[in-house]
């Protein structure tokens, strides 16, 4: 269960989220654009995406160079008096695939880290994509009233109990 509080200003929402996090609650912050300092306030660890990128790049380089070497040695088709395995062209193939695999691994890393895609019902308020800032407070089945009080105390101007579900059944 969770309760979503809507805030009019980013500073208040951020302060509320920080205070609630510090108090040991499970909180997430929703905003129409990235808020400076939100990741630190909510104690998010450094993004592990860089490891995905690095791994993808290395894998891409070995795959690119490996593919070129492998395919050149299936049938020996000598061309232009060059070696069967000339380094400059094959390194170039490796270079391009470094980037291709790097990009794909970064995308994969992002999707895993951000827990997307999530085509299912989740607590959400569409105002947070326009001009409101939402603080989502996780709570027990009987703690909703208490959570609402906390959010009100932190300055929430509206409360969505259970949250607006996404995707909504009808258009808004």
């Amino acid at each position: 269960m969770s309760v979503l509080g809507l805030f009019a200003r980013p500073e208040t929402a951020l302060a509320a989220a920080k205070a609630l996090t510090d108090a040991g609650h499970a909180v997430s912050l929703m905003s129409p654009y990235p808020i400076e300092g939100a990741a630190e306030a909510l104690r998010l660890p450094r993004s592990p995406i860089r490891r995905y990128t690095l791994f993808g790049g290395l894998l891409g380089f070995s795959c690119g160079f490996g593919l070129a070497v492998f395919s050149a040695t299936r049938h020996l088709l000598p061309t232009g008096g060059r070696p069967i395995i000339p380094l400059p062209p094959f390194l170039l193939i490796g270079y391009e695939l470094t980037i291709l695999f790097g990009v794909l691994a970064t995308l994969l890393g992002f999707l895993i880290c951000a827990r997307l895609p999530a085509w299912r019902e989740r607590p959400y308020a569409s105002e947070t994509a326009v001009d409101k800032y939402g603080v989502l407070l996780e709570c027990g089945a009987d703690g909703e009233a208490e959570a609402e009080t906390r959010l009100r105390a932190a300055g929430a101007e509206a409360i969505r109990r259970g949250g607006e579900l996404m995707p909504p059944e009808e258009g808004t």
Binding site: S28, M30, S47, G102, V103, G109, P117, Y124
Partner: peptide, 30 residues
């Protein structure tokens, strides 16, 4: 993809986006 604009999503998007930018510059030149 079910984007909600949570700080977790923004945080990782920011990182991923920067990595994309870093990868795309040498790519475009090449």
């Amino acid at each position: 993809l079910g984007w909600r604009g949570t700080e977790r999503e923004w945080h990782h998007l920011g990182w991923a986006y920067t990595f994309f930018a870093v990868l795309i510059i040498p790519l475009a030149v090449s």
